[in-house]
Amino acid sequence: MIAQNFEYSSPASLEEALQMMAGGDAKILAGGMSLIPLMKLRLATPGHLVDLSRVPALDGVTEEKGNIRVGAMTTHFQVESSALLRARCPLLAAAASHIGDMQVRNMGTIGGSLAHADPAADYPAALFALEARVRLLRVGSDRTIALSDFLVDTFTTVAEAGEMIREVIVPVEEAGTGVSYQKLVQPASGFAIVGIAARIRKSGGKISMARVGVTGLGPMPYRAVGVEKMLEGTAGTADDIRKAASVVADGVDANTDIHASAAYRARMAAVYAGRAIQAAVSRAA
C-alpha cells in the first residue's frame, strides 16, 4: 500500500497555492482522508500535491449578513464542535458528527469532502437541504455557485483545472426551524447507505417550508423536491409524512453494491426520510 511517488509542495499563502495550481497539473491535498487511500490503491496517481494545511486562514467558521462561511480547510471536528454552527446552523454540525470516525473527523475537511464528491458522503445531504453555495478560486477568477451546480456526477464536480474551493456558504437558520439528519450507516466504513437531512418550518399549524437532502441512494446526492412539495401546506401528521417520504426515491437510479441492493436502498431512503422529517417537524416551533 505505497503510493506512486510525487512532488510535494506546502505553500505558505493562498496566492502561492493558487499559482502552484495554475499549471493545472497539481492536485490539492486537504485532509487526505479520501485522496490518500486512493493514492495508496494507485487509483489516483497525481504527479504533484499541493498541501493546503499550512496556508493560514483557510479554516474557520464566520457569520456575515445572514450567511455562515465555512472555510474549505475546516475539519469535520471543527464543524461538529463549532459553537456558531451548533447555534446558528445545527444541521451542518449534526451531519459532520456522523462522518467516519473521530480520527477521520480530526483530519478530513469540508472542502476536501466536497471536491471528492463521493455519492455517499454525509455533508451533501445537509448542504442540499440548506441550499448551500460553494466559492471557487483560481488565478484571476472568484466565483460562487450553488452546490447543485457544483456537483455534476459521481466523484465529479465542475471545478476546473487550477480551481480550488475557498469556502462553503450556508444560511443562518431562522429561529423555529426544525432540522434532523438521519443515516443508515455502513458500519465498517461509516459511509451512508442512505442519509437524509430535513429542514422544516411551520406557520399557523402547517408546514410552510420543507427542504430534504438525500445522500447514498443514487449516483449523486440531491434535493428531494417532490417530497418537499408534498409536505408544504400539510399539517405534518404521521400520515402526511409517510406519504411524502414514500416518493423520496422516485426517478432515482438507486445504487446496488455489496452492502445493499437498489430496492433495499430505495426502501430505506423512504424509512429514513420519514424519520428525519418526523424529527424535524417535532423540533419546529
Partner: peptide, 11 residues
C-alpha cells in the same frame, strides 16, 4: 488523534 497510515510523513 490521527491514523498515521493515512498521512504522509511530510505532512
Amino acid at each position: 488523534a490521527v491514523k498515521s497510515c493515512t498521512m504522509f510523513a511530510v505532512q
